[in-house]
Design a protein around this nucleic acid. Structure first.
Length: 667
DNA sequence: ATTAGGG
DNA sequence: CCCTAAT
């Protein structure tokens, strides 16, 4: 439930954008969500996902896609299948286990599809192209194509591979996690494959174009195609340095290898049409496949991991964002491989670099809370909440203007992603699943803290779930990364300002959580980064929404002034971020705003009040009424009375002044 | 733990 | 909002 606030905002935006409507939201699967999250970071990937999703939704396209994916998936038992499955999952929520069924069915579809299938293949190719364009690192996979060709006798296998690749692309993000499982194998293969891959280039520029069209990644696609060798076109020359590249390639290779095997097994399916696709297609597909997968992951990781790391090794920090992305992806892999070994050095550098980044990380915790809050608030009145959220969002934006601005770029693509993330968060927080960990870590902490911790924990869990395979590395890296990403994106987005108080309070908790959650390396990194950030950033004020103000007023009218704790309990139980003190302060502010005790002072003051008092008149009116009934400080009625005497003196002066004026005027 | 109040 | 003091 919690973490809603942000989530709502995002949702709101999301709906408006209409991009992800069905996809992310519908996804129940935590894994899927995660994938989305991961994917989002990459604009390209995101767009792809969206496209794919749409396609799926669209009857025709969807049919093709599914069929293709299935057919392809079938062959690639491991990777491809996963990809295909993932897609289905997104749409249908199909579980992994179910995938098999889909897999089996696919062959039928494939056969029945026949020529249609072929068209589907085109689609796949286009997709592949997209992938290709998207997955910068994929070009590496090309090397595999030859391998496959040799290994897989018939074209069909290739076809399947291609199809798989396409599917995979769509799912790349999602697959990435899964890929992680494969990662072990991939890693092994990486070294071998990576070398071979480079030499191979993708033969089909046309496909690339198609891809670019689909993905809207004009620059990237060309680059990807032409640059298989270059790899670097996207990446700075420095960047291309073997390690990163290798890492990405390795993953791809792994996948590829898996794919290839699968494809071979599938070979029996071999449709004539598929055969048409021929080696080229195969190579392309292979290449694409490889790329797509790894890139995704890396990309995600990368997001999580600031460019700083990259900069470390490569000085590429200054690289443009797109480039940075690609780099990030590659780097990510590299990091992935190297992570353990290098971590210490990277971290040191990272930390230094991350300083800015760190702030984002720090936000993570904050974010989680805001989201939670939001959720809670949402519960109340959807409409009101929406408005509130909007308002809050707006206000937040203002406040966090700089942050938002920074995030805006990615934001579009990410919105969907973010939403998904939020959902996840919410789910996690709410879900019993996460509780275990949470309890373990957080249990001791009070609920408030717990929420914060929970969010943090949930993140971790999520990661864990998503990346079951490479847990060690992944956990360290991914968690850190994901958290970062999240922080960066979400926090930036949310940036809402979590109550200063909460943040302050949570700080300790947070630390605890962090430490508890990842006592691993993360502590060193994140904590180090985070704590400072936290200290610097805390103090986020959550905007009071009109609905909240209304509730407060109702509470005051019901329980009278001064019963803040009661009002809090009864009316604000859902909004953990509003404490009794907050209520009190807010009431105080409302009184000021209402001008009740304003004493009819000068116009200047009134105007000034008006300026900072956007409250609706009815609300102000109610406040005034209540104020009269319940003078603010409980016993303060007298105060009002007190007010009179002072006024009198003041009045006298004024009257005198007026008289003087009159006299003057009269004269 | 709550509340009032100042900063 | 934050923090403190008083209760």
């Amino acid at each position: 439930m919690k973490g809603t606030y942000i989530g709502h905002i995002w949702f709101y935006q999301y709906y408006f954008s209409g991009v992800m409507e069905d996809g992310p939201l519908t996804l129940d699967d935590g894994t899927t969500d995660v994938q989305h999250l991961l994917v989002e970071p990459q604009d390209e990937h995101v767009s792809m996902d969206n496209v794919l999703c749409f396609n799926e939704k669209i009857p025709e396209n969807a049919m093709k896609m599914e069929e293709v994916s299935c057919s392809f998936v079938g062959p690639n038992y491991g990777v491809a299948q996963e990809g295909g499955v993932v897609l289905k999952q997104e749409v249908l929520d199909v579980m992994p286990g179910e995938v098999e069924a889909g897999y089996f069915q696919l062959p039928n579809d494939f056969c029945s599809m026949g020529e249609d299938y072929f068209s589907g293949i085109e689609f796949a190719q286009s997709i592949t192209n997209l992938d290709y364009g998207l997955s910068e690192g994929l070009h590496m996979s090309l090397s595999e194509s030859p391998i496959r060709g040799s290994s897989s006798d018939a074209n069909t296998p290739w076809k399947s591979d291609l199809a798989i690749t396409d599917v995979t692309e769509c799912q790349d993000d999602r697959d990435n996690f899964r890929n992680s499982e494969l990662s072990d194998t991939c890693i092994r293969q990486e070294c071998e494959t990576s070398i071979e891959e480079k030499p191979l280039k993708f033969p089909t520029p046309s496909t690339i174009q198609n891809i670019s069209e689909l993905q809207n990644i004009p620059s990237d696609s060309p680059r990807g195609i032409s640059s298989d060798e270059d790899g670097g076109s996207l990446f700075p020359s420095d960047f291309t340095s073997g390690e990163l590249f290798c890492s990405s390639k390795i993953q791809e290779n792994k996948e590829f290898g898996l794919m290839g095997q699968n494809a071979e097994s599938n070979g029996s399916d071999g449709q004539d049409e598929l055969a048409k696709i021929s080696n080229l297609a195969n190579t392309d597909s292979l290449t694409k496949q490889k790329r797509s997968r790894k890139p995704t992951r890396r990309y995600i990781d990368e997001l999580a991991e600031p460019i700083s790391r990259h900069s470390k090794k490569k000085q590429e920090v200054s690289i443009s964002i797109p480039i940075a992305k690609s780099l990030v992806v590659k780097n990510r892999e590299k990091c992935y491989i190297e992570s353990k070994t290098r971590i210490s050095p990277e971290e040191s550098s990272v930390i230094a670099i991350q300083v800015p980044f760190g702030s984002l990380v720090h936000k993570e915790c904050q974010k989680s809370r805001p989201s939670d809050m939001v959720l809670s608030s949402d519960n109340e009145n959807s409409v009101d909440k929406l408005e509130d959220i909007c308002v809050a969002a707006v206000s937040q934006k203002k406040r966090c203007g700089y942050v938002n601005a920074a995030c805006e770029k990615k934001r579009d693509g990410r919105d969907g992603f973010v939403i998904a993330v939020n959902q996840k968060k919410g789910d996690d927080s709410v879900t019993a699943v996460s509780q275990k960990k949470r309890d373990d870590h957080v249990t001791a902490v009070s609920q408030k803290k717990r929420d914060d911790c929970v969010t943090a924990l949930s993140h971790r869990k999520r990661e864990d779930h998503v990346t079951p395979v490479c847990q060690k590395k992944r956990d360290d890296r991914v968690t850190a990364v994901s958290s970062r990403k999240r922080d960066g994106h979400v926090s930036a987005v949310n940036q809402k300002k979590r109550d200063g108080r909460d943040t302050a309070v949570s700080e300790k908790k947070r630390d605890d959580c962090d430490s508890a959650t990842s006592q691993k390396k993360r502590d060193e990194r994140v904590t180090a980064v985070r704590r400072p950030e936290v200290s610097s950033r805390r103090k986020h004020h959550i905007l009071w929404t009109i609905s909240e103000v209304k509730k407060l007023i109702d509470g005051v009218s019901q329980y009278g002034v001064g019963r803040w704790s009661r009002i809090k309990k009864l009316l604000f139980s859902t909004s953990p971020h509003r404490t009794s003190v907050d209520l009190k302060d807010k009431w105080r502010n409302l009184l000021k705003a209402s001008g009740i005790h304003e004493q009819g002072t000068r116009q200047g003051e009134k105007k000034r009040n008006m300026a900072w008092r956007p409250l609706p008149k009815p609300i102000l009116r109610r406040v005034c009424e209540l104020a009269t009934i319940y003078p603010y400080p409980n016993g303060r009625k007298p105060k009002i009375i007190h007010r009179v005497p002072p006024d009198r003196s003041t009045d006298i002066t004024l009257s005198d002044y007026k008289r003087i004026l009159r006299s003057i005027n009269g004269n």
